[in-house]
Every structure is written in structure tokens, then in C-alpha cells.
Design a binder for these strands. Structure first.
Length: 445
RNA sequence: GGCGCGUUCGUCUAGUGGUCUAGGACGUCGGAUUCUCAUUCCGAAAAUCAUGGGUUCAACUCCCAUACGCGCUACCA
């Protein structure tokens, strides 16, 4: 029998990050077995329906690369089907109408026992706690219970993969299947993802939707790779896996039964891993797509090799490189701090004296730097550039680090940048000199 | 409250009765490389396996109880 799974969110908000894992697990089971993966929108609650939520969910699932088969199924299109099935149960004496709704007659005898595929464990729920429940609401829409049983039977879902909040409802679902004379679907209830405070990570608690991770510059493959580990480890012990490798190794029986805690720091690490492993061409493409309004898109390719090992998210690109096309802002204290460092071991009174000299020092050093730059042959070569200023540092009796930090701050306004020489190459000789001059003016004023 | 599910380093986890004085990854801390940052490479700290009882020659692994966490207890999903 063909394996068919489905992801069935309700459009009450954006797709939250926990839903990504549910969708992923369902996707992996389908792919592992060469089966089908469907997307079903459970829009049967008009009160909680949020405009645009279904579109956000579909768009995000596509962006993640969890390609689903066929068309998106909307339960609201299937109203008539649920109604007919509910009526059939009434006719068979297994349900009854009351106050405009149709209620299912539960049998409170015995215990519902099923084997949960997730973790391969036995679940036992006493039926005695169950009460008759609504299957068709007075507005004509089905409740989750009816819609699930009818749809997953008609769709031949095998297995149903969903959250653990449904475990308590298992007697309802099993009895509904039996009332229709159908074989119940196999089930896999996967654990809930928790926040760092151990409370449930859900949209109800304001957890970030998956689309926000996209905006933050996370890669879909990294998100998927991270999420798959929340409740499962591949037998091979690999840390980085493609979707195909996950599908190959994935098995519901290895899925854990306890609730994992979502850790954004590890996600960021993994995102960085993906960025570093990516080809320069690919990273360039992704950055160009991500930075829609970037002022200098065609230069991104040049910069990529410089920042590839320095960014964890696509969005990190901006603060690290914006000095290349934006005029830097200076802070005199930053310059002073650089030179001050070699006086750390001196006494306090002496240090004060030294501080007063620092400003003069900066001015004279910057002048020397500018002189060297003026006399350097264009185009500036990196190794020549480096040697020139190493020599100058020796001459002026400051450390090489101090020398390059002064140039770095003068050129970028920042103490942290991609490699200096390469950055300057992108900036250009004239702009570099202009910025050094500007620094001189700034310090003197 | 009742019922259900769970509990290994801060976090994700390996572990299916002896190989565990508990392994890996992220993070943290130290060091090396280095023009800053990052990368990379070394190294360290970090879990009396929730607690208490059993069973057994032997328990992280099996059983029971307690504690704690999560879920359900809607004409929401």
C-alpha cells in the first residue's frame, strides 16, 4: 500500500516553527517510502480564521522545499462530505442531533489501546472519561474529530503524524472509525517543542513564525536540518544532512517521546555551517535575492569570499559591509583606545599624561599613513600594501595591530571589518584616501 | 482535581542489563594561528543518568512510588 502523509495546519496564524518539524517528519516518511505528501488546510473554525494565514503557510512550506503532491486541500470545500457522513451516523443510530449540532454517541466501556509509531510505544486511554461530543457544529462545519477521521480515511493517510495534544482524543477517533466501519489509521504523535523556559513553544505564546526566520536570514536547509534533530538523531550520527539523506535514515520508531527545547543558538551555528559550505556563486545568489533593496548588488559577488566565514545569517551581511557604500561615522574615543593599549602597564598619572599625547600621535600617524598612500603606485597590491604599513609601524614604534586598526577605523569607522586589504581594494584607492583625509579633519576639529 | 505522556551535561542527544569511573554536537572557558572579527586547529570544565524503593550476581537500561514538566478535560484545532 502506498504511503501517504499530510501536513494539516489550521489557518489561525502564520506557520509556527514547531509546525515546520511536523511537516518535515510527515514529508520524510512519505519520501522514504516513495509515497505522497499532501497539504491540507483545516479551515473549519470560522471564528479563529485569520485572513492570509493559509497563504503564509503554503508559501513558507514551499520556501522550505517541502514540496507537496497535488493541490492544497481545503476542508471548507468539503463541507458537504462531512455533512453526509454525519447524517449517515445519525441514520445508523450512532449519532444524534441536538440544538442544531450532531453529537456522536461514545461508548464509555473499556480502554483504547494503540501502538504509537512515534517511539513505537503503547498508549492506553480509558474510555470512561469520554463524553458524547459534537462532530458537526450548528454552523454546518465539522469539528476536528469528524474532519480528521473522514479526510484521513478518504485520503488513505498512513500514518497520521500530529502533535501529542490529540492523544487524549484517541478514543473519539478510534470509535468514529469503527462507527463508519473503517480501519483506523496508524498514528504517530510527535513531542511538543518547548521554549527555553520549558513552556510550550507555540504561536499562542507568541513564538516566532517560520516566515520570521526567513526574514532574519536563515536558510531553509539549515532550518530543516536543525528541526529534524528536535526529537530524532540519525543512526549514522551525521550532523549535516540533505533532505534526501534525512529521508533515507528517518524512522518514526527512533523519534523521541520527550519534549525538546528549541535553541536558536544552535540553529544559528548550523546556518553558519551551511553558509560556509555553500559555493561563492550560490551564496552570492542567495544574498542578492535576500537583500532586495541593496544599493550595490553587483558588488556582492566580490565581497562574498571576504565575509563567508564571518556571517551566520544572510542578514549579518549588512552591518559587516555597509561601510563599503556608506560614509563612515567616526568616534574619537575609538582611535584613542587603539593607541592607549600600549600604555596599559603604566601607572595612572603617567597614563593621563600619555592620553594627552595620544591625540597628537594619531594626527601625526594618520599624516604619515596618508603620505605613504599618496606615494604608492596604483593599483595597490595587497602584499605591497601590507609591507608598507608593517614597515611604517616599526618606524613609528607602534604595533602592527595598532597600525592596521587605525587604518581600519579610518576607512570604515568600525573596529571589526572583513580583511582590510581586500576591503580597501573594493573601496578603491581614491575613496580610501578621501576617508583618511576626512579622519584627519575630524581628529583635528 | 481526574486521565494521559514524559524525565541522561545549560541545550540537542548516544545509550535497549555487564563494553559507562556515561560518548558526541551546540554553547561556555583556556590556548594556537591571525591586520580586527570570524574561520580552522588543540585542550578544559560541565550529567551522583529527577528522587526513593525494589527485581537481579549486575541497572542509565526492568518494575513500583514520589516529585517535577507537558498535554487533554470546548459546537478550537
Amino acid at each position: 500500500m502506498e504511503v501517504r502523509t499530510r501536513f494539516a495546519p489550521s489557518p489561525t496564524g502564520s506557520l509556527h516553527i514547531g509546525g515546520v518539524r511536523t511537516a518535515l517528519y510527515a514529508y520524510l516518511i512519505a519520501k522514504k517510502n516513495n509515497g505522497k505528501f499532501y497539504l491540507r488546510i483545516e479551515d473549519t473554525d470560522r471564528a479563529r480564521f485569520v485572513e492570509g494565514a493559509a497563504e503564509d503557510i503554503i508559501e513558507t512550506i514551499k520556501w522550505l522545499g517541502l514540496d507537496f503532491d497535488g493541490e492544497v486541500i481545503y476542508q471548507s470545500d468539503r463541507k458537504k462530505i462531512y455533512e453526509e457522513h454525519a447524517q449517515k451516523l445519525v441514520k445508523d443510530g450512532k449519532a444524534y442531533e441536538e440544538e442544531g449540532a450532531i453529537w456522536f454517541k461514545i461508548n464509555p466501556e473499556g480502554t483504547t489501546v494503540i501502538t504509537d509509531l512515534s517511539g513505537n510505544r503503547k498508549l492506553e486511554i480509558p474510555n470512561s472519561d469520554q463524553k458524547d461530543f459534537v462532530i458537526l457544529k450548528s454552523d454546518g462545519f465539522p469539528t476536528y474529530h469528524l474532519a480528521h477521521v473522514v479526510d484521513d480515511h478518504l485520503m488513505d493517510t498512513n500514518p497520521v503524524i500530529r502533535g501529542p495534544e490529540w492523544i487524549s482524543s484517541l478514543p473519539k477517533h478510534i470509535q468514529l472509525f469503527e462507527a463508519f466501519g473503517w480501519e483506523p489509521t496508524p498514528y504517530a504523535h510527535i513531542p511538543t517543542i518547548l521554549g527555553s523556559d520549558k513552556s510550550k513553544l507555540s504561536k499562542r505564546h507568541g513564538a516566532k513564525p517560520a516566515s520570521e526566520f526567513r526574514k532574519d536570514g536563515f536558510l531553509p536547509e539549515a532550518i530543516l536540518n536543525y528541526m529534524v534533530f528536535l526529537g530524532w538523531t540519525p543512526p549514522s550520527g551525521k550532523e549535516i544532512l540533505t533532505l534526501a539523506e534525512m529521508a533515507d535514515e528517518f524512522d518514526l520508531k527512533d523519534v523521541h517521546v520527550s519534549n525538546p527545547v528549541f535553541d536558536i543558538v544552535k540553529l544559528e551555528w548550523m546556518n553558519g555551517e551551511y553558509i560556509r559550505k555553500m559555493s561563492n556563486e550560490e551564496l552570492t545568489k542567495r544574498l542578492q535575492e535576500f537583500l532586495v533593496d541593496h544599493p550595490s548588488k553587483d558588488k556582492i559577488g566580490l565581497i562574498v569570499p571576504l565575509i563567508k566565514e564571518r556571517i551566520k545569517k544572510l542578514s549579518d551581511f549588512v552591518p559587516l559591509t555597509d561601510f563599503l557604500w556608506e560614509k563612515p561615522e567616526y568616534d574619537e574615543e575609538v582611535f584613542k583606545m587603539i593607541l592607549k593599549r600600549h600604555s596599559e602597564l603604566v601607572s595612572e598619572s603617567q597614563q593621563k599624561q600619555i592620553l594627552n599625547q595620544v591625540q597628537d600621535d594619531i594626527v601625526s600617524i594618520m599624516k604619515k599613513i596618508l603620505e605613504e598612500l599618496e606615494s604608492m603606485e596604483k593599483p595597490w597590491e595587497s602584499d605591497k600594501f601590507e609591507k608598507t604599513f608593517r614597515d611604517l609601524a616599526g618606524e613609528l614604534e607602534i604595533s602592527v595591530t595598532q597600525m592596521f586598526q587605525l587604518i581600519r577605523v579610518a576607512v570604515s569607522g568600525r573596529t571589526v571589518t572583513p580583511p582590510l586589504f581586500e576591503s580597501i581594494k573594493i573601496l578603491g584607492e581614491d575613496e580610501t584616501k578621501a576617508r583618511i583625509k576626512k579622519t584627519l579633519l575630524f581628529i583635528n576639529s
